[in-house]
Simulated assay, not measured.
Amino acid sequence: MKRFPENVALWRTVSASSQYGVWNARYAVDSLHHTCTQTAEETNPWHKVDLLNEYQVKNVAITNRDDLATYQRINGAVLRVGNFRDDIYRNTICAEIPTIPSGVTETYSCGMVGRYVILHIPGAQRILSICELDVNGHQYRTAIGNLASNGSTTQSSTSGDWFAEKAIDGNRGLHGLRKGGCSSTLAETNPWWRLDLSNVYNVSRVVVTNRNDCCVEQINGAEIRIGNSLENNGNNNPRCAVIPAIPGGSYSYSCGGMEGRYVNLIIPGVMKILTLCEVEVFGEGISVAVDCNDKNY
């Protein structure tokens, strides 16, 4: 059974053309081979993984269902990699899959660049079902890499050893307490977390990873704010996005090039807890001199 040491698809954002019963698309990126995804019977069913950045995709491993009655639901699938989110057929074909035996993991060499990995079956009255989709590759555009990795962090309070810096340690720590890779405040009014990028950037997007072992609701209502002021601990800076609710996993929020040195997440309200398993920031540097004696810094 082929498993990649760094599966870049793990708990990334996923979608499917439809969902049959409880067979959620997220089950294909949860690292568990006994949980599977399945579409309804339809024309041209598809499953798509958003890697949230461009990757040089080396290999893709697909695990089929261990069920002699239904394993044929992968038959005729086409594997694609590319940057076209909405028109999946414009993405480059990596492999065509005539079949995969029951319960078997097959690996396909791709060697192509893309943000999206798509599996689809052409034809009418088809059902697409897989149990796992692993992607082996490396980030393609390192020049626009994660700005947060070199930053510094603080938060309004700390629960146990859930320190603020754990949200930028490169470990998505999806399993929270069991893996120890997340930050968390205490229950309080308006809890917040702040990242200092050390320089001013035009922030194109922020990727937030929520825990998935429990308590996914602790992210609900969080605001992403970006700017150059430390007034109210940076929480008065302009707002990029509001996170109403997200399941465990990584989700990308477009900020449209907002200018700022500080990236804050804050949940307004009483008796709130803010837990973050990873915050990634992408953007470009701008020529702005930062005066360290300025009271706003």
Rank of each mutant, 00 (worst) to 15 (best):
T275H: 09
G151C: 11
L174F: 13
C36H: 03
T43R: 14
N53I: 04
L51K: 06
T185C: 15
L128T: 05
V270P: 11
I62H: 12
T13Y: 04
I226P: 04
L51S: 01
F282D: 13
V60R: 07
G257Y: 11
V60T: 10
N296S: 12
F163T: 03
E165S: 12
R172C: 01
I224N: 07
H175K: 02
Y20E: 15
R141P: 10
A222K: 09
N24T: 15
R261M: 11
S149G: 04
G160K: 03
Q19M: 13
S183M: 01
V78A: 12
Y140R: 13
I168C: 14
S198L: 10
L119V: 05
R90K: 12
A222W: 02
S159H: 12
Q72F: 12
T37Q: 05
V203Y: 12
W23L: 03
L276Y: 10
K166S: 02
T158W: 12
G234V: 05
Q125W: 03
T142K: 10
V104D: 00
R26Q: 11
R12E: 01
S17D: 06
C255M: 03
C36A: 01
P5K: 07
Y251F: 10
V104Y: 03
G111P: 02
G221S: 08
V270Q: 13
G180M: 01
D169S: 14
V135Q: 01
C110M: 09
R141K: 11
G145V: 08
A241F: 14
T154E: 08
V22G: 15
D30S: 04
N199D: 15
S109G: 04
D213P: 14
V49P: 08
V14H: 02
V81D: 09
L133Q: 04
V8N: 00
N59S: 06
Y27W: 13
N24Y: 14
V57E: 04
A241H: 13
S287A: 04
R178F: 11
T107P: 02
Y89T: 15
A245I: 05
A28N: 06
H138S: 11
V8F: 06
V49D: 06
A167C: 08
W11C: 06
G160T: 03
A28I: 07
V203L: 02
R26C: 10
D213I: 15
